[in-house]
């Protein structure tokens, strides 16, 4: 069970992630894309999923029982090779519905002071 005191708290990653051209190309190619100059719209999940799991490791959230409920991306500009991101994860809300925990996590990717991508994931922790 997620520690309810953590709702509203933001956890900021200690180290940054550099986006490589290889990572963009690999992701885009799987989708059948032929243009690799900018990252596909959902590429940021390849950074934020692992980072958020690490950042929220001590939160009490049982990641092994998590089902992805919904996902939203807002991009202020496309992600490109060379971007050097610090990831932060905020637990925006947590509630229990029919025995399942429903947790909304916002993950932001900052390059310096610039907020490039915000993502919201609704996670359903199955009872």
């Amino acid at each position: 069970m997620l520690d309810p005191d953590l709702v509203g708290r933001t956890f900021v990653g200690a180290s940054s992630t550099v986006v490589t051209q290889e990572a963009i190309t690999n992701f885009a190619r799987v989708l059948g894309a032929e243009n690799f100059d900018v990252a596909p719209p959902t590429f940021s999940i390849s950074i934020t999923l692992a980072q958020s799991q690490t950042l929220l490791q001590e939160s009490g959230l049982d990641w092994s029982r998590v089902v992805h409920g919904d996902q939203r991306f807002v991009l202020s500009r496309p992600i490109v090779a060379g971007d050097n991101f610090i990831c932060s994860a905020t637990i925006e809300s947590a509630r229990v519905m029919a025995g399942n925990e429903i947790v909304t996590v916002r993950s932001d990717l900052h390059s310096g002071s610039e907020l490039v991508a915000s993502t919201w994931s609704t996670l359903v922790v199955r009872a």
């Binding site: 243009n35 900018v38 719209p41 409920g69 919904d70 996902q71 939203r72 919201w120």
Partner: peptide, 13 residues
């Protein structure tokens, strides 16, 4: 006309 033009994207599974 390219991934660069996509500003927002959301879906429920």
């Amino acid at each position: 006309g390219g991934s660069g033009a996509v500003k927002e994207f959301s879906a429920r599974f």
